[in-house]
């Protein structure tokens, strides 16, 4: 009988699975499609900014300062791009293994279920990061064109880090939804609806009806990605509360909350950790029946 090859460690298997899955993502049509979408958004944005740059250079305009530019352009579109990347690479990452029966191939191999989950997550994260990198490159090229040597404000660095943390949270949730269902479409739809509309709606409801800080809603926390470009940055754990009185006698008031950067990071990390643990536990108990 042949000698049984010594099995690689789980870490090594995660690396191998990630490598193969990442290659699979990069050679997929969906990757090309997402690159196309981001390039199209960048092209439209570049054209619009170039066409109206005289107007946009006025006070409060998009091109009035590099901070205003990155706060609007980079951070403004980042949320959509993160959700698209998570949906494209994570929506069917787990559900697809059941639906397309590729999981039956993987699960016949001597690997832990957690290895499959983590390996696929890292690959999806890597593929999504490359899309974010593409968006950053487009924005930086525009920034360089309009602000010359002053095109790189330091605030961009924490904003990029916050964007990556947001991606981790969204991808964690997407993998959880993908683990919940054995049909890929449900994972796609639930992620897209929740992150494009659902959480924003929930945030408005919490603010409008319960009238408390919507700290439990991820779309609120992700506001920190753009908030770091404000002149007064709140780096802390507590939100900045602003109350505006309506009318001359100060009757009705509107209270708004801006998350502190540390607060935003903690909320997003909490989403990432909780959804990842839940998704992993679900996948550990999921049957290939």
């Amino acid at each position: 009988m042949a000698a049984v090859a010594e099995l690689p460690s789980s870490m090594s298997q995660i690396f191998q699975l990630t490598k193969n899955q990442y290659r699979e993502y990069l050679s997929s049509r969906r990757y090309l499609a997402l690159v196309g979408i981001v390039v199209a958004i960048g092209a439209i944005l570049s054209f619009v900014v170039y066409h109206y740059h005289d107007t946009l250079q006025g006070p409060g305009g998009l091109l009035s300062s590099n901070l205003a530019f990155y706060g609007s352009v980079w951070a403004g579109a980042l949320g959509l791009i993160v959700v698209l990347a998570a949906v494209f690479f994570g929506g069917d990452a787990i559900a697809g293994e059941f639906q397309n029966k590729t999981g039956y191939f993987l699960m016949g191999l001597p690997i832990r279920r957690a290895t499959v989950y983590v390996g696929k997550w890292i690959a999806a994260f890597g593929a999504s990061l490359s899309i974010l990198g593409l968006w950053l490159a487009i924005v930086l090229l525009n920034g360089a064109a309009y602000f010359g040597t002053d095109f790189l404000p330091w605030q961009l660095v924490p904003s990029i880090i916050l964007g990556i943390v947001y991606l981790m949270a969204v991808l964690g949730a997407t993998f959880l939804f993908s683990s919940l269902f054995k049909t890929s479409a449900y994972g796609f739809v639930l992620t897209a609806i929740l992150f494009l509309f659902g959480f924003t709606l929930l945030q408005d409801l919490v603010l409008g009806l319960v009238k408390i800080e919507p700290w439990m809603v991820i779309s609120y926390a992700s506001g920190a990605i753009g908030d770091v470009f404000a002149t007064n940055i709140n780096w802390g754990l507590a939100a900045t509360v602003t109350t505006v009185s309506l009318g001359p006698r100060g009757g009705a008031t509107i209270t708004s909350y801006t998350p502190g950067v540390a607060e935003g990071v903690i909320i997003m990390l909490a989403y990432f950790v909780l959804s990842s643990v839940a998704g992993l536990l679900l996948f550990e108990r999921e049957e290939f029946s």
Binding site: V4, L7, K101, Y104, F105, G108, L109, P110
Partner: peptide
């Protein structure tokens, strides 16, 4: 599964 070859339900690669 280290020393097992498994083929179940015509999987897809």
């Amino acid at each position: 599964l280290a020393d097992a070859g498994v083929l179940i339900e015509s999987p897809e690669i």
